Amino acid sequence: VTVHVNRYTYHFDNPEEAEKFAREMAKRLNMTVEIHGNTLKVE
């Protein structure tokens, strides 16, 4: 599972951890999480 935050890319083996990380980053940056299959984008 890949998480994109701005120009950074993070890889996770565990989808739940990836989503938790993405949501935490989105909250911190006041952004939203978009899910595209195995890719989560924080925008």
Rank of each mutant, 00 (worst) to 15 (best):
V1N: 04
V1P: 03
V1W: 15
V1Y: 15
T2I: 12
T2S: 08
T2G: 02
T2P: 02
T2C: 13
T2F: 11
V3F: 01
V3G: 01
V3M: 01
V3I: 03
V3R: 01
H4D: 03
H4A: 05
H4Y: 08
H4G: 02
H4Q: 12
H4S: 09
V5W: 07
N6S: 10
N6I: 10
N6A: 09
N6M: 13
N6R: 08
R7P: 05
R7G: 15
R7A: 12
Y8K: 14
Y8R: 13
Y8S: 09
Y8A: 11
Y8E: 12
Y8T: 12
T9Y: 09
T9N: 05
T9M: 11
T9W: 08
T9L: 11
T9S: 08
Y10G: 00
Y10P: 00
Y10T: 01
Y10M: 03
Y10N: 00
Y10C: 07
H11D: 03
H11S: 06
D13P: 07
D13K: 09
D13C: 14
D13V: 08
D13G: 06
D13S: 10
N14V: 07
N14T: 11
N14I: 07
N14H: 07
N14E: 06
N14P: 00
P15H: 14
P15Y: 15
P15L: 15
E16Q: 11
E17Q: 09
E17L: 10
E17T: 08
A18G: 10
E19K: 09
E19Q: 10
E19M: 15
K20A: 12
K20Q: 11
K20H: 09
K20P: 01
K20S: 11
K20F: 09
K20C: 14
K20I: 12
F21D: 00
F21R: 00
F21S: 00
F21G: 00
F21L: 01
A22K: 01
A22G: 02
A22N: 00
R23A: 08
R23F: 11
R23C: 15
R23E: 07
R23Y: 13
E24W: 14
E24D: 10
E24M: 14
M25Q: 05
M25W: 12
A26T: 03
A26W: 02
A26I: 02
A26P: 01
A26S: 04
A26R: 04
K27H: 11
K27Q: 12
K27D: 10
R28N: 06
R28M: 12
R28I: 11
L29N: 05
L29D: 03
L29P: 05
N30T: 04
N30Q: 07
M31A: 14
T32C: 11
T32N: 08
T32F: 08
T32L: 08
T32R: 13
V33T: 02
V33L: 08
V33R: 00
V33I: 09
V33M: 05
E34T: 15
E34A: 14
E34D: 06
E34R: 15
I35H: 09
I35A: 08
I35K: 13
I35F: 12
I35Y: 13
H36F: 12
H36Q: 11
H36I: 13
H36V: 12
G37K: 06
G37H: 06
G37V: 06
G37P: 05
N38F: 04
T39F: 09
T39G: 07
L40G: 04
L40F: 10
L40W: 09
L40K: 03
L40H: 04
K41L: 14
K41D: 05
V42N: 04
V42K: 03
E43C: 15
E43Q: 14
E43M: 15
E43R: 14
E43S: 14
E43K: 14
E43Y: 15
